[in-house]
Design a protein around this nucleic acid. Structure first.
Lengths: 150, 150
DNA sequence: ACAAGGTTGTAGCCAAGGCTACATTTCGGA
DNA sequence: TCCGAAATGTAGCCTTGGCTACAACCTTGT
């Protein structure tokens, strides 16, 4: 049955465009992923320690500290965070909103994975990558699914 | 309840390492994603047209043709594909195996999304990004879940 | 009070994966 | 046949997200 893989017929412009659009979208989602991860991490750290220090961000993200600095610079550029030299990093309102959204989505994804039988450890691990590709419609479906089984 | 988000306590080396490892792994998966996508695409084209041309690959992936050329160069470097100038691209045995694995995983992911209530269109769209982060354990869980409701 | 050590910033490198512009090759139709 | 259009290759640019090395800045203990 051919319901899964679309024919990918290079002669059909519509199908080709649709296919290209999916990959394009996956690439876009990936570009967002870094923002989301750092935003949530900063939010986590502030909740627990009242501040988010570059060193801690870097260590928890598993990168060298200049990499974290660059990421924070991008967050600032995008209006998600603020910081002053040698002070911690803080989220703007937009950043806090994103963090909340990301945190909630992460929880739902992990819960769904566990609900369909994925071992919790794998669920936590895979969710880190999966969550960035879960659209709003898919997220809602996950919530319905989880809700429908208490 | 704290079962989802680990405390992310920067003072606990073990937790920090585990957290870092998850992000690290997500980054690795992302690096593999391009290989997987192109490999499957080439396999698709060969199945349908007997050959995979750079132009078609590029169009279906939604990129300019030199981008596809670069990707194929990487596939060749990694021993997944072969090609001669102005001839099509072909998969090595390793490439064909990867394509088969990726195709199968893609199908399972789409089926699972649909099974938990995601609209087919969204399922197809999101699966493109999600599949690359589905580990073997998670994949097996998906298959069990699908099997158990046949 | 101040030196040592940890933290942060900055400079500059690399590879990957996009792109455009241009050169070359192939191939099909007049 | 052979010429023009399409396909492919190549060069070179940009941004991103890694890294190391080094400089500047805090902070803390003696």
């Amino acid at each position: 049955m051919m319901t899964h893989e679309p024919p990918a017929d290079p002669d059909d412009p519509a199908l080709a465009a649709a296919q290209a659009e999916r990959f394009s979208q996956a690439r876009t989602a990936q570009a967002q992923a870094l923002l989301e991860d750092y935003t949530e991490m900063i939010d986590d750290l502030i909740r627990e320690h009242g501040e988010a220090r570059i060193t801690d961000i870097a260590r928890l993200m598993g990168v060298a500290h200049p990499t974290a600095t660059k990421a924070v610079a991008r967050l600032k550029r995008e209006g998600l965070a603020v910081s002053r030299p040698y002070r911690g990093v803080f989220l703007t309102e937009a950043g806090a909103e994103m963090a909340e959204r990301v945190r909630s989505r992460h929880r739902v994804v992990v819960d769904l994975l566990i609900a369909v039988g994925v071992p919790p450890e794998s669920a936590e691990r895979d969710a880190e990558g999966i969550e960035h590709h879960v659209s709003d419609e898919t997220l809602m479906a996950f919530e319905r699914f989880l809700g429908g089984r208490g």
